[in-house]
Design a protein around this nucleic acid. Sequence first.
DNA 1: CCCTCATATCGCATATCGACGATTGACGTT
DNA 2: AACGTCAATCGTCGATATGCGATATGAGGG
Lengths: 112, 112
Amino acid sequence: MKTSTTTECCPPAEPMPPVPTDPVEANEHLARLAKAIGHPARVAIVRMLVRHEGCIVGDIVDALPFAQSTVSQHLKQLKDAGLIRGEVDGPRVCYCVEPGAVALFKALVEAL
Amino acid sequence: MKTSTTTECCPPAEPMPPVPTDPVEANEHLARLAKAIGHPARVAIVRMLVRHEGCIVGDIVDALPFAQSTVSQHLKQLKDAGLIRGEVDGPRVCYCVEPGAVALFKALVEAL
DNA sequence: CCCTCATATCGCATATCGACGATTGACGTT
DNA sequence: AACGTCAATCGTCGATATGCGATATGAGGG
């Protein structure tokens, strides 16, 4: 198996970062998460990572119609927003969703 | 009563724009909505409009620490995304949430 | 060791955003 | 008709986003 690497590399991950109590901070947090999601490619990435329970790497690049460097930037933005996590797995890098962050995002949106 | 105008002006509004079936289109739609939400001021605006069942106008400007023109631009972005609607009510303009769009957004996020 | 593969990062060009002040337009009031 | 008010738009500016190719970096394999 080489073509599609679906290695296991994601730790259990925390349950859910505390929902911000301060309304202003909640707004900013939601805005930050929404902004990170605010691009079709990043939506696709998140969806892909959520579906593939495990993690994927350069498969993401193959699945998207963008150059490798572009995809890497999108991954960085998602990582900066705390939505995903990347861990080095030998020669390749393994990305996985941060379930808590996604849950928080859903909660914040639901609370709109 | 002049200071805080909370006039009634929002029509019942449709129940919910159809959830896009095409996954690509769903991604783009979600991205568009998320992008529109991806700013603290716009989050605040949406939240404000959702809470005040009716509609508000220049009160939004007073509630935010930005110039009137800036708030107007944010309102325009939200309107372009289909999240809110603005109707002229005499000398002032009345904004209200598009409940269907918000529901769709929530549904799309939930389906992540 | 060198070489390759997989990612990240840099540098660049273009486009859009975010904020503002100033102007315009629409509407009531006087 | 002239005025004042409210809101949208214009023009501008710096900052950021988005895309790419080219280049660094790092881990493994020959």
